[in-house]
Nucleic acid binder design. Structure first.
Lengths: 340, 340
DNA sequence: TTGAAAGCGCTAACAG
DNA sequence: CTGTTAGCGCTTTCAA
């Protein structure tokens, strides 16, 4: 493979000027006279010059690249987040190196390693649900490569985070449900090894407490964040003949799992059992019944985290880690409407 | 930003050997004795050495990186494809540079430009629905950067493509529908500017012909591939009081648009109007009614296209462009089951 | 088995 | 305004 591409040198020779002049001209450096600059640009265009970003990165020690580590991508929340991240980063003139850990801590580690090796300027990461090894984050820190954690963050002091108000969201949802007549609540809680799991449980419990409803521990079922978990948890309660009136599902897939299971055993939603979940996707509108949810605005998450990351990249002296919390809102559709 | 990282030089100095020895040892070059190699590796590990992939790329003229250009990402087909691409490429030791064109031809162009500037080893692209400017693909070709087109491909000779059997898929679906009693078919066809649109129309027409059913031209409605298009097309027919019995939707979002519109005006699916679409997502199972579809296997698409791309990268002498076609299969759920 | 020389394409100082 | 001098960190001949 030897794509013989045009280099600065080729342009310089052709024009009888120095490489530096060409380099500066092309980058719009104020040193160069407009006349020369225009000539250089014209020639570069004619020759079909494409800058070699690799060489530029090496020389300038700046890659204008952000590494993104996501636990999954074929999941609406993450693909939507990715979309926003990509678009916003692009508008800020950063390229994105995408990496998917598949909820695997080991992979996550090697991926960060790779991203560091690629000399990304910063890393944006939503950690796996079972991340327990934080050493790699320390390594990145030592290398002075800024990391911003989004949505799923580690239990660490002094790190930059952008999260949604999970606790408040859960609280809001339960509160709403109480208002419309519900009294018996379960929470399919995902993993409490991770902040979003813990926070949502906290909000759930507090809402019950504040409404004078007793928290029943076997109605808080931990699992993970996918369909199967919702399905299994539902079946467990169903088989024990211990179904609540309302389930707060920790994610949209978990809610889908509940839909699956309920359909299978002939429990009607929302008449016999009602559901609300974290995470919005417009197809929820077309489920039967249309699924209500706690919306986590991915556009704001993306913007805030990229802004934060770039600000750290641009200003490495930056001392105080920041924690940005983004608000949620309730989207009420065909579930969690009124107690029947 | 000066992350003072450990370099080969540091290791070499510490060990009193040359840089080259270290470089070779670390890459497992057979030149080096096992003893030296082990010592070098140990030291590298202790020092926390991370290779600088940028420098390596520059020196070796190989980035081990594949650029991916997708028209959208927050769409199940593409996020699922991306997931598979990422996973498979990773297993082949390639990193992924993701880029999203947002169905915008200009953006697509600059993104390919950027990818070329980043010296990716190859490009995997699913083009925008209105791509009419093919010059950029020629540029890439001239630069000897291999391109593989996936799913959405340009109308060009001599390019490498991996597609699904769109025509066959449409044919299969309509044929099935005829068998269960349908006679009046519409096709919400997306854009015929792009292969997938054209092929699906072809399959649709041929199936009707082969079954002796007349093709009604105003029942083939072009638009694009998103919800709104399905919604609008439905409304058009509804307002003209000219609804068919069955609609073949060109994508899953278009089908969702039909669901939206039908719900709005009180047309019952599948009793009064039936729907089937291209593209599978497990949530279709939970729509009301569960949506049947023509499945496009993203795992196979990803594997085939990465394999093809890497084979071209590894063997640039490669002459004959290849066209791989992947089979579809019908997934029948709650629609397109039986004519009521 | 090891290393010296050369350079990938570009940019950052600084000097003219 | 333009150019010179030095690399960035690594790999590739090719010689020792």
């Amino acid at each position: 493979m030897k794509p013989k591409s045009i280099t600065l040198n080729d342009i310089a020779k052709k024009l009888g000027v120095s490489i530096i002049t060409v380099s500066k001209a092309l980058r719009g450096h104020p040193d160069i006279s407009k006349k020369t600059a225009d000539l250089v640009k014209k020639t570069a265009y004619e020759l079909g010059y494409t800058p070699n970003l690799i060489a530029r990165s090496l020389a300038s020690r700046k890659s204008n690249t952000i590494g993104v580590v996501l636990p999954q991508i074929a999941h609406h929340f993450f693909s939507s987040l990715m979309d926003q991240i990509y678009t916003y980063a692009h508008s800020k003139n950063y390229a994105i190196f995408l990496t998917v850990s598949q909820e695997n801590q080991m992979m996550q580690r090697t991926q960060i390693q790779t991203l560091l090796a690629m000399r990304v300027d910063g890393i944006l990461i939503s950690i796996t649900q079972d991340t327990s090894d934080f050493e790699i984050f320390e390594i990145a820190k030592k290398r002075e490569v800024p990391i911003v954690f989004v949505d799923r963050i580690p239990n660490l002091k002094n790190c930059n985070t952008v999260t949604v108000d999970d606790k408040g969201g859960a609280y809001k949802a339960i509160n709403h449900a109480v208002k419309i007549g519900y009294k018996k609540f379960a929470h399919f809680a995902g993993s409490s090894k991770i902040n979003i799991g813990r926070e949502r449980i906290l909000g759930f419990k507090q809402a019950l407490n504040d409404n004078g409803i007793e928290v029943k521990n076997n109605w808080i079922i931990e699992g993970d964040f996918v369909e199967k978990s919702g399905y299994d948890s539902f079946m467990k309660l169903f088989n024990e003949n211990d179904l609540p009136e309302m389930i707060l599902a920790v994610t949209y897939p978990v809610a889908i799992g509940i839909y699956m299971a309920a359909k299978e055993v002939g429990i009607k939603i929302p008449e016999e059992l009602d559901v609300i979940c974290f995470g919005n996707s417009h197809v929820q509108e077309f489920l039967s019944p249309p699924l209500s949810c706690i919306n986590q605005p991915t556009d704001i998450l993306a913007k805030q985290s990229i802004d934060l990351l770039i600000s750290i990249i641009d200003n490495s002296e930056n001392v105080n880690p920041q924690s940005v919390v983004v608000d949620t809102d309730l989207i009420i559709r065909g579930t969690c409407v009124i107690k029947k």
